[in-house]
Structures are given as C-alpha cells and as structure tokens.
C-alpha cells in the first residue's frame, strides 16, 4: 500500500539534495522562476544589487534540460502523461499566468515550496498556502463545476 509513495518520496529527496546543495555550494536559492528570471532578464529582484551573473543560472537550466533528455530516452510517455489532454489555448493562458504569477510572487513550487519552507520563511509559507488553495479551487471548478 506504500508503493505509490516511494517514487514521489525518492524524487523529493533528490530535489531536496539539489536545492540544499545549490545553496551550500553556490549560495543560491533553487527557485526555478527566480533562476529563469536571472537567465532571461539578468536580476532576481528589482532591488537586487548583488554580483549575480547569468552563467550559473543558464547552467542550472541546462541541467534541467539534460535531465529531461535523459527521461525522454529512458522514461517513455508516462513521464509527461496528461500533457496532451490540456487544450493548446489553455496551455498558453496557463503559461502566461504561471509566468506573471511566479514573477510577481517571487517564486513557485521550488523557490517557495522547497527552499522557502526549508528555511522557515513566513513569506514562503503564505505563498505556498495561497497557490495550493488557488490551484485546488481551480481544479475543483474546472472538474466539478459543470464544465
């Protein structure tokens, strides 16, 4: 009965090792949105005055992509099961909302969810509770709201 939880737990431990490791070794928070913003725009926060360069951020994203390539070779279609069921127009709207929301909110499931909670950040706890609730409510409305 515990079998369904083993892979999520193992994956979670790897994510935790990577997030903790990035902070311990490079001193950076493993928030995918923040890292994407550094790679795209060059700075993490509008008030940021640190010595950040884009190189490490691009390297992190390259790591994510190489992991995806590995999964494409070894994992098969189950890895991304369900992507084809989301309408293309909906994907565009959702992508836009995710991009704007995570940028304004300074983080997503990784930055707030993993790193923020591990650092006992009150902001991250508030953000995680809010986006979990909003996501759950959205799924409830789209699945059980008579659409």
């Amino acid at each position: 009965m515990f079998e369904p939880f083993i892979l999520p737990l193992l994956g979670g431990v790897l994510i935790g090792l990577a997030a903790g490791g990035l902070y311990l070794f490079a001193g950076e928070i493993a928030g995918v949105t923040g890292i994407a913003r550094i790679a795209l725009v060059g700075s993490k926060r509008s008030s940021y005055t640190g010595w950040n360069t884009r190189g490490w951020a691009v390297a992190f994203i390259a790591g994510l992509l190489v992991a995806g390539l590995g999964a494409a070779v070894l994992g098969g279609p189950a890895v991304t099961a369900g992507i084809e069921t989301v309408a293309p127009g909906l994907l565009l709207v959702a992508g836009l909302l995710v991009g704007i929301g995570t940028d304004l909110g300074n983080g997503c499931t990784s930055g707030h969810g993993v790193c923020g909670l591990s650092r006992f950040s009150p902001r991250s706890l508030a953000a995680v509770a809010t986006f979990m609730f909003a996501a759950g409510l959205t799924v409830f409305i789209t699945r059980h709201g008579g659409f």
Binding site: V93, A94, L97, V98, T102, G105, T109, A127, V128, T138
Partner: peptide
C-alpha cells in the same frame, strides 16, 4: 502573484 500562479498551475 501566488493566486495567479495557482490558477495557471490548476488549469
């Protein structure tokens, strides 16, 4: 921001 992200994630 978290609300917008949650809606996008839920969709």
């Amino acid at each position: 921001g978290a609300v917008l992200f949650g809606i996008g994630w839920g969709l």
